[in-house]
């Protein structure tokens, strides 16, 4: 059994968007669309500020509302690592999945189907890291198996304080941010 997850160290991330560019070239994401993105979250009053920088994308949730609401089964949980994927030829473009995602991680591809991050499963299947992780110049992104206690992601989650985005939405997200 494997459940893939990403752990991102917000202390090291500089928000340079290399992950976004790499995703676009790797996956041929059309101009004007993003499967991943950067969020800068600033709290406080100048000069007493705190900023968290996050590289965000589909959370490949354990309870994926986008899969539940899909009327055709196009959105599905892939057996490999519990990755949430969309089968383009089953998708009717009803957009229920877009509305169901608390992260707004999906969009309609210009060809009509719902599209989103795939955790670069095509790379992972041949032993590579997702493009975003492999390119990150600050080495702030980690990818691995939550079910493997020895994985980097588990080690980091066990040793560092972390949070997910909108856990209160109840979707059990699989991207964790080290703080």
């Amino acid at each position: 059994m494997s459940r893939y997850a990403m752990v991102i160290d917000t202390k090291k991330c500089v928000g340079c968007m290399d992950c976004v560019v790499a995703c676009k070239t790797e996956n041929n994401v059309p101009e004007g669309y993003n499967r991943d993105w950067i969020v800068q979250d600033v709290m406080g009053k100048f000069p007493d500020l705190h900023m968290e920088i996050r590289s965000e994308r589909c959370n490949h949730c354990d309870e994926p509302p986008c899969v539940h609401c899909c009327p055709t089964g196009a959105s599905h949980v892939h057996e490999r690592g519990g990755v949430v994927l969309v089968e383009h030829n089953k998708c009717i473009g009803c957009k229920a999945c877009l509305a169901s995602c608390p992260y707004d991680a999906r969009f309609i591809h210009p060809d009509g189907y719902a599209d989103k991050c795939t955790f670069c499963i095509h790379r992972v299947e041949v032993g590579l890291l997702p493009a975003c992780v492999s390119v990150c110049p600050t080495h702030c992104m980690y990818f691995g198996n939550l079910d493997d206690p020895a994985s980097d992601v588990n080690k980091l989650l066990n040793s560092r304080s972390h949070h997910a985005v909108l856990p209160e939405a109840g979707t059990k997200p699989h991207i964790f941010y080290l703080t």
């Binding site: 202390k11 090291k12 500089v14 340079c16 600033v42 000069p47 900023m51 110049p137 600050t138 080495h139």
Partner: peptide
């Protein structure tokens, strides 16, 4: 430089940033 900056952050280096703007680096 950015790669080494991240290395330094990870290694726990003390970082001092002087800038009229709260830059990315300032947040570290």
């Amino acid at each position: 430089q950015v790669q080494e900056f991240a290395d330094a952050i990870e290694a726990g280096a003390s970082i001092i940033v002087v800038d009229p703007r709260y830059s990315i680096a300032a947040s570290k």
